[in-house]
Amino acid sequence: MWQWLHSWGSPRWFYLRSGRLLFGLSLVTAGFLAVGVFSGLFLAPADYQQGESFRIIYIHVPAAVLSQNVYITVALAGAVWLIWRVKVADVAAKAAAPIGMLFCALTLLTGAVWGKPTWGTWWVWDARITSTFLLLFLYLGILALRQGLPESTSGRSCAVLALAGLVNIPVIKYSVEWWFTLHQGKTFSLTQAPSMPAEMYWPLLLTVIGFHLLFLLALLLAMRAEILEREQTRDWVSRLVGGYSP
């Protein structure tokens, strides 16, 4: 088990093995997203108070869950890089950050679009929304460090920043319980009974799983590109691309 895990830390091994997963993963991702989005938009009944506008949860809630989970991924990968110097971990941290930033921006955008008809405002500075806004800036900070620093030190700085920002994650998660917020309590939970009937819940479950798979797929693709770029002078890469060397 330890041996097997260790072998994934080698960029070459990671590149070759992950290539075999791509096709199957793409199919499953497309399946989950297609069924989830279709049933959420067309099969699920309209909400008794919000009408059709509630359907934005099928994008908003998965995007919000992912913006936090991707951040945790970036921070953990950064920690593995800091402590054990596993090269693939730094590749993962670099590749995951922009994906997480997009999910976070999507969360804020869909939330604003939903807030206007439901609450009567696009934006309020309540604890949930403000802490999510802070998360977007943490992502932007990590991206700026990655771009701005030389490659030899950027991984370390990004990892430290990501780990420091990790304290924001429980604040986002529990903000709706610790304080009075305009934002409602959590909609999606794996450990509690759903707060909606099954025909509204299962499309949400499908899109949440689908978004996780989509992240995994995007992460693998970005990591593979990054590995090729970092290892471009190695023999295995030049053999892979047919003898061409830059």
Binding site: P45, A46, D47, Y48, Q49, Q50, F54, I57, T118, W119, G120, T121, V124, L182, Q184, G185, K186, T187, S195, M196, P197, E199, M200
Partner: peptide
């Protein structure tokens, strides 16, 4: 005046 929504959803 802002409407606060709860986390419960129901078909009409």
């Amino acid at each position: 005046v802002l409407a606060k929504h709860d986390e419960n959803y129901m078909p009409r």
